[in-house]
């Protein structure tokens, strides 16, 4: 029986879809059977980031309304041998095409076959969010070091805490610009984690490569030389390593910052 993890943020444009794609990819790289589910009905783009847009035949709404079987709608990622699948969102309907009960049933059947189901949640706290959270067991909240994004993350965490089936959410801080944090122009990691007071599961540096890769339909996690890629792989490890305790911040420091320091010749 697998686990469903919802990736959410409240605010739009903080990197939910990129995070979903890369955590999914990184988990598949670890040999887990992963299914990515795009719940952003009407504004889908997880398929674009994954480079699977042209293979979509059926979508989530088709499955829920019984027009096809689940396995018919799942798009297989050729880069992985039977490990990574995508359930795309419909582009022609809107969020009200699906209700939370239907999502729950769908997630339960997916959990039978997959180790991890990564649910890409739409922005906002309305129907789309409720659908995405309905079948989830765990939640990852993505935020950026901006006051507005942290504010919305706080709101979302409050809502997630009310969900009985969802474990306490974990935090990913995305798009970190270390020079701005150092100069104090950006909220720093400690400030955000104390403010939101939930467990930090990873930090991802702002990296041009991420944009380049997603424009090519290739998740950055596939590129072992990128800073962001390592960050996403670390997050995947922490998701797996729940029984093996890790120290998130320090580990990421080792991974990202020491590399950075080396790069700039500091110490």
């Amino acid at each position: 029986m697998g686990e469903a993890i919802v990736i959410t943020s409240g605010k739009g444009g903080v990197g939910k879809t990129t995070t979903s794609a890369n955590i999914g990819t990184a988990l598949a790289l670890q040999g887990k059977k992963v299914c990515l589910v795009d719940t952003d009905i009407g504004l889908r783009n997880l398929d674009v980031v994954m480079g699977l847009e042209n293979r979509i035949i059926y979508d989530l709404v088709d499955v829920v309304e019984g027009r096809c079987k689940i396995h018919q709608a799942l798009v297989k990622d050729k880069r992985f041998d039977d490990l990574l699948y995508l359930l795309p969102a419909a582009q022609t309907s809107d969020k009200s095409a699906v209700n939370p009960e239907q999502m729950k049933v769908l997630m339960d059947s997916l959990k039978q076959e997959y180790d991890y189901i990564i649910i890409d949640c739409p922005a906002g706290i309305e129907q789309g969010y409720k659908n995405a959270v309905a079948g989830a067991d765990r939640a990852i909240v993505v935020t950026t070091p901006e006051v507005s994004a942290v504010r919305d993350a706080d709101r979302i965490i409050g809502l997630l805490e009310k969900e009985e089936n969802v474990a306490p959410p974990k935090l990913v801080i995305n798009r970190i610009r270390s020079h701005m944090m150092k100069s104090g122009d950006m909220l720093d990691v400690d400030e955000i984690t104390t403010h939101l007071s939930i467990e930090l599961i990873g930090i991802v540096a702002d990296d041009d490569e991420v944009i380049r890769a997603s424009n090519h339909g290739e998740p950055i996690a596939l590129n072992p030389n990128s800073r962001a890629s390592i960050a996403y792989r670390n997050i995947a490890r922490r998701i797996l390593g729940e029984s093996v305790p890790l120290q998130p911040l320090e580990e990421v420091d080792k991974g990202v910052f020491s590399k950075l320091k080396k790069f700039f010749g500091v110490k």
């Binding site: 504010r151 919305d152 706080d154 709101r155 965490i157 409050g158 809502l159 403010h195 939101l196």
Partner: peptide, 25 residues
């Protein structure tokens, strides 16, 4: 508990909150 954005905590008497009130709460 932490009173997060969008949450409201009301009590008739005195309130002793062991936790934070975040912006928007």
């Amino acid at each position: 508990r932490i009173i997060r954005s969008g949450q409201v905590l009301e009590v008739p008497g005195d309130l002793l909150l062991i936790g934070d009130v975040n912006p928007g709460g």
